[in-house]
């Protein structure tokens, strides 16, 4: 598996900071997922070997933690908060609008690969509900109208994917 040099550098710096190597498992899953877009079997095996663990020790994390994924997302990874405070502010309507505008069912990636739409649990910004995340960027107060605007911007490619910032940092 080929990782970007900056990922390898981050991993090499991170692992020795932990008193026990295995503690670096979740951080490594994040770093490799950010590098590759998702965690393939090969990635799972690579992380396990790097930490002197068995692949199952990593696989059980991948299947437990909702943010770890085994498939790539579309260009835009859209996560709408579903939980009660957002729902009281209209999150279900927001999500249905995004489904319709992006022509994608919740939990799936659109056929053209433009967007993956997920309905997820609380993002902890309930005072500005409904909350939508695109990649690592947060958008607040997304009612049906704003959802439509966001979808249009995704289609025209003018909305940031929310991954740019991270690459810079």
């Amino acid at each position: 598996m080929k990782l970007k040099p900056e990922t390898t550098e981050k991993i090499d710096k991170l692992v020795p900071r932990y008193p026990v190597k295995r503690s670096a498992a979740l951080p490594l899953c994040h770093l490799v997922q950010e590098d590759q877009g998702y965690l393939s079997n090969e990635a799972v095996e690579w992380i396990a070997e790097r930490l002197e663990l068995e692949p199952i020790n990593i696989q059980e994390l991948v299947t437990f933690y909702p943010m770890l994924r085994t498939e790539p997302t579309g260009k835009y990874h859209v996560r709408v908060c579903r939980t009660l405070p957002c729902a009281l502010a209209g999150a279900y309507q927001t999500c249905r609008k995004l489904e319709e505008a992006l022509d994608v069912a919740v939990g799936h990636t659109s056929e053209d690969g433009l967007a993956t739409l997920e309905f997820v649990e609380c993002h902890a910004d309930c005072g500005k509900a409904p909350v939508v995340m695109v990649g690592e960027d947060e958008y607040t107060g997304i009612d049906v109208e704003k959802a439509l605007e966001m979808a249009e911007k995704m289609k025209s490619g003018t909305l940031p994917t929310g991954l740019e910032v991270h690459t810079e940092a």
């Binding site: 026990v20 951080p27 437990f64």
Partner: peptide, 29 residues
């Protein structure tokens, strides 16, 4: 003293302190 910032991965149960510790050790929470 040093501080390590450790990121969770979307599981509510990690807020429970012993679940958090399990997660910090590299396990399911």
């Amino acid at each position: 003293c040093d501080i390590i910032v450790h990121r969770g991965a979307g599981a509510y149960i990690c807020g429970e302190e012993t679940g958090l510790i399990e997660s910090l050790e590299g396990n399911r929470a």
